[in-house]
Amino acid sequence: MKKLCVVLDEREVQDNPFQPDMWRIVRRYPLTSDVNFYQARPVDVDEALKMNYLPGQFIMLSIPGEGEAPFCISSTPSRPGLLEFCIRKMGTLTSSLFDLKENQTVGIRGPYGNSFPIDKMEGKDIMIVAGGMGVAPLRSLLLYILDNRDRFGKVTYLHGAKNPGEMLFREEFFQLKERDDLNCLLTVDKDDTGKWTERTGLITTLFKELGPIDSKNTYAAVCGPPIMYKFVMENLVKLGIPKHQILMTLERRMKCGVGKCGHCAIEYLYTCIDGPVFTYWDVLHMKELIGRGVSDKVIA
């Protein structure tokens, strides 16, 4: 079987692919109690417009002395100059990142990975299903599609969170709900505020509100906690969306991002260069792809 997808950008590949460039944090604010949002731009401003990426790709982020790990990109290449990412306080590196202040610098290299297959998705209806931290990579895709709205068909966005306080980019999505070229459905498992105006219940309850779907003409992109996949996949397959048109993005431990260190290997694939975006069809016949748990936050 041939490699799923390795598309190296035509941009100049650095001599040393492990060399991080220094970027400055220009904006930071909390999204929830344990997730921060960051905007960064290169310290060398002339480099700012050279960062060329696609939704679904990731970067390797380092703090000198603390280490390096992969993070998905939450911004869209259709708004160039800045990179945005979300960081949840999880381990030692993410704790240091979480405490970063505006104007501090971090090392960044990339972008890496195969990205969502944008060229195949153009002209099709799009359904995005985000749960919890899974919104981090899917926001890149959604904003990209909205910025190129006339190149896509019907766009549906389903987003589930535990409770209103845990919903990432809450204000942003409430604004997007106002658009009439996007069907944006938001739900929380439980409303502990008494002020929640949207749906309550698991994300799968949103499927009942979808109405008729042109399933063969639809690409679905899913990211969320492990428990969500099982039920969401069932629903998507029931809708009749072909399995190779159901996309998901995976998380693995990575030390290089460029197919050398071995950590993200799944059978003959490396999550870093053959993924992190895989189809449900890949998952069905690559046992290890999803067997022992899917991440709730895509990449590290």
């Binding site: 380092s62 000198p64 002395g65 280490g67 390096e68 050398k260 260190c261 071995g262 950590h263």
Partner: peptide
Amino acid sequence: CNCYNVVD
């Protein structure tokens, strides 16, 4: 076997 780890 080519796998490696990286530390600062």
